[in-house]
Nucleic acid binder design. Sequence first.
DNA 1: CACGGCCCTGCTCC
DNA 2: AGGAGCAGGGCCG
Length: 347
Amino acid sequence: MLLKLYRINFLSNYPKMSTCVKGKLSYPKDQLNLDLTLLGGQSFRWEKHTNDKKEEKWQGVAFECFWELHQTPSTIKYKVFSNKKHPDEYFTKLLEKYLRLDFDLSGNCEKWKRAHRHFAETSQALKAVRVLDQEPLETILSFICSQNNHIKRISTMVQWLCSKYGSKICSYEGVDYFSFPSLSSLCDHQNELESALREAKFGYRAKFIAGSVKKINESGGNDWFQKLRSLSFKEARVELVTLPGIGFKVADCICLMALNHLESVPIDTHIYKIAQASYLPRLSGIKSVTPKIYEEVAEHFRKIYGDYAGWAQAVLFCSGLQRFQETKGKFVDKTNVCVPAKKQKKK
DNA sequence: CACGGCCCTGCTCC
DNA sequence: AGGAGCAGGGCCG
């Protein structure tokens, strides 16, 4: 045990010293559900741990920092490791920005409840999911991985990218944590990138990622991301869909979660089913979501829920997800008759 | 322009 | 046991 501690300290202090900062901010728990927000499919870099005393903590990497979060009814306490020196308040501000704590969730939920009956019915108990404000490159590559895929495998793939091309932030409790790779780091391996990804079981997404990295670099990298933030939502989306592997749905996820375009409403299969059942019954016979149908649904949500329609969608999505799990794969919207979950037995 | 077939992998189901 | 079916899409014909 002593030896182990010594090793960890030795490794993490040398050759590069990563500093640990502790901090705390006040925020009511009922306005921030960390499970839904961090583990619900926006980011793929967080894990929750519960010890035998049933104390919960969330660990993850964002903005080149490793974070450990604890939540009390009125506060969030954090530990953060970073390779770069910053004044302590930098981290508090960063965390507030990442979680968009300035957004009045309960106020907006009241508006959304008045805007449509379905919202009022589905979210009686507030699903306090917050839309994260994430880094564009990480969000783009992660959501390219998300197609035809589920959270668990996406997380594995993103983790692979980080440990292969990212840089080590710290070693904590015996685990190494890596930042998401920078654009330049990925470009340095441009020639081998696709084949390396293939080998790492990225499947057909390997080509998309390599191609997108190349194109992002040619477009100006971080300057291009800044430009996309300053453009209107739809202008930004037009630009994004020129990247290989990015269609409307993934582009909308990026706009919403990394480019500050909160009116963006990603229409995935879950949301489409909700739309068919409770918003646009006309679509109930139509299976394939063509670009035209996609836009119709998205515009419909924007019309109802306004400038922050994407956030309203996130809340609806979480409500749907929960029911999805409860019914063991059979998606059942509340407006339909609820099919009882199959009895599971078997060891 | 709408549609179906296909794409990689890994897991679950039967 | 081992093949079908599917998972928070996109591309191509």
